Amino acid sequence: MTFTVPTVDISAWVQEGPAAAQAEVVAQLDAACRTVGFIQIVGHGVPASIRAGLASAMDDFFALPLAAKKQYVRPAWENRGYSPPKSEALSYSLGVDPITRMNDFFEAFNVGATLADYPHVELAESQYAANTWPSAGAFENLVSVYFEDARRVAETLTRIFAAALQVGPGYFDAITDHSINVLRMNNYALPPGEIELGADLTGMGEHTDFGLVTVLWADQVEGLQVLGADQVWHNVQPADGALLVNLGDIAARLTNDVWMSTLHRVKPPVVEGRIKRRRSAAFFHDCNADAVISVLPQFVRDGEEPLYEPVTVQEHIEAKLRGSRAGLKNTGARREAARVQAVSG
């Protein structure tokens, strides 16, 4: 069976189209969530100019000298600011040992929703830390504009999810009204000599995303690989104008693994002794930190136990971050780790 990432036009939901058109989007998205867990979405309404502005801001920041970028390093638990190359190992978020400790060679910059964004809710700063912004240039403005559009797309998707799961239109509003939203901007490009180019290169180790849904802008450059049902890693690139969407662990937990939190990784190509540059920006819509996530009853058969115990979003995400950022293996991700260990190649 040929591996494909389905393309779904969500414009009927973005523009409040006819009921029949919306129902077709629901059916297509539900099928993709059950069979692949990754979707190409078009009709999302994010203008090309805003996507180009994001790319420009990323280019300007990542072109700075490493010493200048390191001014923006923040404590791992805050999930904000700059992450230098080889300071993380995403496979640790699943409890899987990487080839070498903390070996993912990407660099990243994170911004997210803060306490100030939710003034009427009493929240802990641990998941809603203030942002650090580079002092020069238009970075903050360009990134903030994209952030708001990506948030809108993610919230549109949760409306479609509610229809697909038949949980009522307000279900996701109740668990995302002060969502942990993070935009992670990634850069994969290192000069020769920084790493051993003959090694099994890991741009970003195999992992599942932590939250409900991820909206990804990415270059049309090889590197992103998705694990198919055939247990083979497949290359995935965004189509012209499309955003890639994938489900995270919260979606899998809600549906008892009927919807797929698909394993993926990044292995950028090497051309003439250099890693070919690749950029991406992942918007993580992760639900409220204090939301308790339990398997929806309709996904548990009579006489069977759910695959997952209830957990708060904060507990789940902090265990994942302790793995990827602090090198503390996540021992609570047994199902995900088993999937990684069953795959070769």
Rank of each mutant, 00 (worst) to 15 (best):
V226Y: 06
S87L: 08
T7P: 07
P85D: 12
A333H: 09
A252P: 03
A68R: 11
L247H: 00
A67T: 06
W77T: 15
P191M: 08
Y171I: 04
V221R: 03
A12S: 10
F105L: 05
Q40P: 11
L254P: 00
F139I: 04
I160F: 03
L244I: 11
H178K: 04
I317L: 15
A108W: 05
E148L: 15
L201F: 13
E315V: 05
E222M: 03
L216D: 00
E155W: 10
V295W: 03
P119H: 05
T158I: 07
T202Y: 03
A124N: 14
L212C: 09
R151S: 02
E140R: 14
H316I: 07
R334Q: 15
S87H: 08
A113V: 03
V266F: 00
T262V: 04
A229P: 06
Q40V: 11
M204W: 02
W217H: 13
V215F: 07
S179R: 12
D117I: 12
I195H: 08
L216Q: 00
D59K: 10
P310F: 08
L165G: 01
Q166S: 10
G193V: 13
R325Y: 12
L115M: 14
I275T: 05
F147E: 01
A124H: 10
A20S: 14
P134T: 08
R265V: 10
L307C: 09
L190Q: 10
L321P: 01
G81A: 13
V36P: 01
L212T: 10
L64G: 08
K267R: 13
F299H: 11
A55M: 13
A342D: 14
L183S: 00
E125R: 04
V121M: 13
T202M: 14
A52H: 03
H285I: 07
S83H: 08
A130G: 05
A242M: 03
D173I: 02
V245S: 03
V145A: 11
L94H: 03
G45K: 02
L197M: 13
A89M: 09
I275A: 02
N246W: 04
G241A: 09
L212W: 06
P297W: 12
E196C: 14
T262E: 01
E206T: 04
E24D: 07
G228Q: 03
I317D: 01
A337W: 11
V8Q: 04
G45F: 02
W233S: 09
D240H: 11
G228A: 07
P169K: 15
L54F: 09
D240C: 09
I50H: 00
N235S: 15
R301S: 15
V46C: 06
Q341T: 11
W217V: 07
D286Q: 12
V14W: 12
Y171T: 02
L328D: 12
F105V: 02
